[in-house]
Design a protein around this nucleic acid. Structure first.
Lengths: 195, 195
DNA sequence: AAGATAACTGAACATTTGTTCAGAAAAAAG
DNA sequence: CTTTTTTCTGAACAAATGTTCAGTTATCTT
C-alpha cells in the first residue's frame, strides 16, 4: 500500500512539527530519530521528507518561528509609561508568553548547540534582538533615575535568566496561579533593579 | 598490536572522564559517541569499558561527583553572621564555584533528561539538598525580619536561576573580573530579597 | 469516467551506534 | 629471566541512524 486514507499535506505538515517539538523537548534533538517522529504522526519516515529537507531544518524552523513569534508578540504590545511600567509589562509578558509554550522555550535554550553554524547565527540574531529590547528599558530607567543598576548588560541577562527559571519548576495547576507567579517575579525584578 | 607503551590505568581513567566531560558539554551526551571519547583519549573504543560499565554510567558519575563536590565545598565553608551575611557568602560561593567548572555545570543542568530513572532520582536528591541550603538562609532571613520575600521557595529557585545565568555569558578575561561579577550579582540578589 | 497530481509506502543504502571478546603486548611480580 | 596480571587492540555484532527513491494509491482536476 502507499498513500493512506485521509492523508493531506495541510494536516501532516503541522502534525510533524508538533511531534518534533514535543519529542525534541522531551528527549533532546540528538536523541530523537526521524522514525520516532514519523511514528508519532502515524506515517513512515520517508514521508517526513516531503515537509523538511532534513532533520536539521526541522529543528531550525521550530526555533526560528518561536523566536519570531516572541519578537512579534512583544512588538504588538505597546506600553505607555515610564521605564518601571515598561519593565513590569516586560516581566509579565515574558513569563506569560513562555509559560504558554514550554516546549518551544526548552528547545530554544537547550538545542542551540545542535544547530549548524549558519542556523546558529540566525537564531542568535533574533535572541540578541529580544535581549536588546529589555536592555533598552533598563537603560532608559537608569537615565531617568528610575533604576539603580551597576551594569545594564549584566542586569539584562540576569533578569532573563531569572525569569526563565520559572519554566523549570512551574506546573500549571500548582500552588500558585499565573498571576501570582507574575506578581512574585515582578517584585523580585523590581527590587533587583532598585526601583 | 595490543597494549601500547606507557598505558596505565591510573592515568587513562581520569583522561576518559575529562574527555567525556568536555565532549558532553560541547555537543551533548546523545551527540557524542564512545568512539569520539576514545579518540580524544588516544585509545580504542573497547578500552573505555575497562573504566565504565556503559555510556550511561559515564554521564551519571560525572554529574554525581560534581554535585557531591558542590555540597562538600559549601559544607566546608562555615559562615558566621546573620542571614544577609550568609546569603552574600552563598551568592559569591555559588558564582565562584560554578565558574571554575563550566563544563560540569553545563552537563549537570542540561543532561538530566538523558539519565535513566534511577540515576535521575539520585541526582535530584543532591540538587534538592543544595537548594534547601539556600532556602534555609532565606527562611532565616524572613524570620529575623532581615529579608522581605513573598515566597521563599520561588525566591530560592529564582536566585539560583539568576546566578546560573552568569555561566551562559561570562568568559574569563572579559570586561569584568570575577570579583566584580560577584559584586554585581550580590547587589541584585540583595535587592531582590529586600535586604 | 479518465487522467494528472500529490501523498505516502516499503525497501534499500551506507554509516554509525553501544557493546563484547579473544588475543596480543606491556608492565608488574616472582 | 619467567610467569602472571593488567591494559589495550582490532575485529566483529546486531541494531539504529538519516536519507533516497521507485512504485502505489488516494485525491483533485477536467
Amino acid at each position: 500500500m502507499a498513500r493512506t486514507q485521509g492523508s493531506h499535506s495541510g494536516i501532516t505538515g503541522p502534525r510533524i512539527r508538533e511531534a518534533a517539538l514535543q519529542l525534541f523537548a522531551q528527549h533532546g534533538y540528538a536523541a530523537v530519530s526521524m522514525r520516532q517522529i514519523a511514528k508519532e504522526v502515524g506515517v513512515q519516515a520517508g514521508a517526513l521528507y516531503n515537509y523538511t529537507p532534513d532533520k536539521q531544518s526541522l529543528l531550525f524552523r521550530l526555533m526560528e518561528s518561536h523566536m519570531r513569534e516572541l519578537l512579534a508578540a512583544w512588538g504588538d504590545l505597546v506600553v505607555e509609561g515610564d521605564a518601571a511600567v515598561q519593565l513590569e509589562a516586560f516581566v509579565k509578558f515574558h513569563i506569560r508568553f513562555h509559560m504558554q509554550r514550554p516546549d518551544e522555550v526548552f528547545i530554544a535554550y537547550m538545542e542551540l548547540r545542535n544547530l549548524n553554524e549558519e542556523n546558529f547565527a540566525g537564531i542568535e540574531v533574533l535572541r540578541r534582538s529580544y535581549e536588546d529590547a529589555l536592555e533598552q528599558i533598563l537603560k532608559d530607567g537608569v537615565a531617568s533615575g528610575c533604576f539603580r543598576i551597576p551594569d545594564t548588560k549584566i542586569a539584562t541577562l540576569a533578569v532573563i535568566a531569572m525569569l526563565n527559571g520559572v519554566m523549570t519548576w512551574y506546573r500549571s495547576g500548582g500552588r500558585l496561579s499565573l498571576e501570582e507567579v507574575e506578581g512574585v517575579y515582578w517584585e523580585m525584578v523590581r527590587n533587583a533593579v532598585g526601583a
